[in-house]
Simulated assay, not measured.
Amino acid sequence: MFWWRNEVRPGLWVAFTDTDAGNLALHVGDDPDEVLVRRARLESAAGLGGRRFQYMSQVHGTTVSFIGDDPEPPTADAMVSTGQPLAVMVADCVPVVLAGESAEGSVLAVAHAGRPGVASGIVPATVREMRQRGAEGITAWIGPSICGQCYEVPGELRAEVAAAVPESWAVTSWGTPALDLPAGVRAQLGALGVAVDYSGECTRESPGLFSYRRRQQTGRFAGLVWTHD
């Protein structure tokens, strides 16, 4: 169920699911009832004790949503909370989980960093929102995503993204233009003084993970962050 799971600080957990957890997305043509059952099973496995992960409607935009008491999923590509468990779904894009501490307690965040999001700075925007909420000592965990040797794109698109994030420039293992989105995210985090504790495997090369590039009709796995008292 969990590709990677760790208690990264006392009472603070970060995880990324795998195909054994099943598809967790409601927008890929799956049976909604079955998706909700899988989500509930995941929440039980995480030990949320009746709490639920907050999901969002991801649109490759630049909106960072603060999650308070409103249970409705926001249309956003990043979320920040001061305790609400959070989830971000991907199948090749970069799932980024972040956590910091404020005077009031933990500040949690997740971000969906696909090609548009890396170019437009969704991850730096998330860090800024966390700091506005008082977060210090922020750490990030970059989950499994497609690697630079596998993410082939047209040369013009590579140039466009690399103009904004030079570290994303890459070449596939077969010699064609590519983008290294995880490298771009790591560079953005590094420029903001945010350490990265985990960087996951390539989704296209890992059968235990969903990958849109490997199979377009596919599910979504999740990056998760939550706390236990």
Rank of each mutant, 00 (worst) to 15 (best):
N6T: 15
P10A: 14
G11V: 08
W13M: 09
D20W: 11
V35H: 11
L42W: 05
L42G: 09
A45V: 13
Y55I: 10
Y55F: 15
M56A: 14
Q58D: 01
V59F: 05
G68A: 14
P71F: 06
T75K: 15
A78H: 04
M79D: 07
T82W: 08
L86Q: 08
A87T: 03
A91F: 02
A91K: 08
V94H: 01
V94K: 05
V94G: 01
G100H: 06
E101Q: 13
G105V: 13
L108K: 06
A109H: 02
V110G: 03
A111F: 06
A111G: 00
H112W: 07
A113R: 02
G114E: 01
G117D: 03
G121N: 02
V123N: 05
P124Y: 00
V127S: 00
E129R: 15
M130Q: 02
E136Y: 01
I138C: 01
T139L: 12
S145V: 00
C147M: 10
C150S: 14
G155P: 00
G155A: 12
R158G: 04
E160Y: 08
T176H: 05
A178R: 06
G184P: 02
V185R: 07
Q188Y: 01
Q188N: 05
G190E: 09
L192M: 13
S199E: 15
G200N: 07
L209I: 01
F210K: 06
R215M: 14
H228Q: 10
D229L: 13
